[in-house]
């Protein structure tokens, strides 16, 4: 999804005066953006706390500022700068964290982002965007740019099955209809589920929904999803994020608060490093039961 960032931000810069800061990252991806933005593309160096505060100052000066780094260096290292300099001052800074969940695989735990949106959702009024497909990036960039609120974009690697096309962007999407129960997923992992479920008969397979934006509100949950939920014996929630503060916690809270009767709930989520060994993104997903076969076996 990184490659979608330069054309999207260059297009947005025609509409909104913006400045882009990177924490010394973006080789083989952000060069077109550097060329396109000129002196408004700033390599702030390996100094994420300063970068975040500078971004806040730039926003105060009237320029919309975008900050890019590997996800944990974007939300965890400079957390107080996000809390104080961006949120307390109500400044419109946009964060882009590359490598959501276990995307950095065998690079090790320092590079994984397992609690990013949960942490940032504690800061009012952060908006979270977790694209599932490369095609989601452009509409999300414009949505973030047109919002006055601070936003976080969690980038991953699109896993859209080869013979399928990405559904047009929406905060909630039914990506695969089914007459069984219902599964809600966040992030690129949905592609793996789509690939596994698409060959199963529609009469028995679960219906697969995709959520891309948080925080959730009752008003934004589609009627069709609620209708489906009311007929389901099970609700599956799948996310490459720790359980605490993730999609499941937020969704169940909103549903209960609005008197929705819940069926049995199954939650597949990141569990850290159960074996204390490291490997690819798929290795970590398997360890947590976050791969499609494990999810479907547990759910069905």
């Amino acid at each position: 999804m990184r490659n979608e960032i330069p054309p999207a931000l260059i297009a947005l810069s025609k509409e909104i005066p913006l400045v882009f800061l990177t924490g010394d990252l973006g080789f083989m991806a952000l060069e077109p953006l550097k060329e396109g933005l000129g002196n408004r593309f700033i390599n702030a160096g390996v100094a994420e706390q300063n970068m975040m505060s500078v971004a806040a100052g730039l926003a105060y000066s009237g320029l919309q500022s975008w900050v890019y780094s590997i996800a944990p260096f974007c939300y965890a290292r400079p957390f107080e700068q996000i809390r104080n300099d961006i949120c307390l001052n109500k400044l419109s800074v946009k964060l882009i964290g590359n490598g959501g969940g276990y995307a950095y695989g065998s690079m090790g735990g320092t590079h994984h982002a397992l609690e990013d949106y949960g942490v940032l959702l504690t800061l009012n009024p952060f908006l979270i965007f977790v694209p599932a497909f490369s095609e989601d990036v452009l509409p999300i960039i414009f949505k973030m740019g047109r919002s006055s609120k601070p936003c976080y974009l969690r980038l991953g690697k699109s896993e859209l099955p080869k013979d399928m096309s990405a559904p047009s962007y929406s905060a909630w999407r039914c990506v695969l209809p089914g007459e069984g129960s219902v599964i809600v997923c966040m992030g690129p992992l949905v592609g793996e589920l789509m690939a596994s479920l698409c060959f199963q008969p529609v009469e028995t397979r679960p219906e697969l929904w995709l959520v891309t934006e948080m925080p959730l509100s009752w008003e934004t949950i589609p009627e069709a999803f609620l209708k489906k939920l009311s007929k389901s014996k099970k609700l599956g929630i799948v996310e490459e994020h720790v359980a605490q503060g993730g999609l499941a916690h937020h969704l169940i809270y909103v549903l209960i608060k609005n008197n929705v009767s819940l069926p049995a709930v199954f939650h597949a989520h990141a569990k850290g490093y159960p074996s204390q060994t490291y490997g690819s993104q798929q290795f970590h997903r398997r360890e947590c039961g976050l791969d499609a076969p494990a999810i479907l076996e547990a759910f069905l």
Binding site: G57, L58, G62, S65, D85
Partner: peptide
């Protein structure tokens, strides 16, 4: 660092 951002933003603008 926030002051740096404001100063840089003013210079760019």
């Amino acid at each position: 660092p926030v002051a740096l951002g404001i100063a840089l933003g003013w210079r760019l603008s």
